[in-house]
Amino acid sequence: MRKLRTKSDVTRAQIIQGALQALEKTGVIGTTTRSIAAEANVQLATLHYHFESKSTLLVAVLEALIDEIAERLREDRAGTEPDLDDRIELLIHGTWRSIMRSRARQIVQYELTLYALREGAQWLADQQYEAYLRLYRDQLTSKSEKSELSTAGYTSLARFILAGIDGLILQELVKPSRTRSNQVIEALIFGAKQYSQQLRQEALMVIR
């Protein structure tokens, strides 16, 4: 989690947490700024001081959810510099562990995406997708001077993994089966490794 330095930071985090709790209980449509303020135990005026609209607060909720996953992924890699295959495994396993900790939060994220698309807030859906794509790409990219793939290659690999994770989340939400999902996760890891090899070979061909 981000270090909270001021009283304002603490209040802002409190509101975001209250928003997440309200969204988990009543969904995006049923959640109002008033209900969020009540859940966060702050005055409505205080909420509006920190967030000018419900949309800006929803963006902050999305950022907090992504930060939570990012922190856990960084902890998995702490003090190591794994190769690309290992980074793929760490990313997919770590992401899936974080996702499975809260079914309600995954429903909220899907609701946020659909809400954004229905309400004409394409930017919110775009921001959510791009944030996850950026997170995955950063986790896949080597921190050493020698990178296995180009930036475009890492982006393509991140998009492939994100598509697989998104599909698996929806399947798990509709018809839960940890055994089946774990098998699919292993298949996704295998497929991502194969795709990364293809991307590396294509990069070598371009160089030649």
Rank of each mutant, 00 (worst) to 15 (best):
D126R: 07
L168A: 11
T32M: 02
L117S: 02
L65G: 14
W123Q: 11
K143S: 10
I15K: 03
A104E: 15
I165Y: 05
L20W: 12
T155P: 00
L133F: 07
Y195G: 00
H93G: 00
V10T: 12
Q122T: 04
A78H: 12
I99A: 01
P176F: 09
S35G: 03
T113R: 03
A78M: 13
L23F: 11
L168P: 08
R72N: 13
L135Q: 04
S156A: 15
N41K: 15
L162H: 13
L188D: 06
V10A: 12
Q197P: 00
E63M: 05
E89Y: 07
K3A: 11
S8E: 15
V42Q: 01
K54M: 08
A19L: 04
E202H: 04
L149P: 02
I15T: 04
L62V: 15
A37S: 10
I169Q: 01
T26F: 09
I165Q: 07
I16N: 03
D9Y: 03
E186W: 00
T155S: 13
A131R: 12
A158F: 11
I15G: 02
Q109F: 11
G30M: 06
A116V: 10
I99D: 02
L173K: 02
I189N: 01
D138Q: 15
L57Y: 03
Y132P: 00
G27I: 09
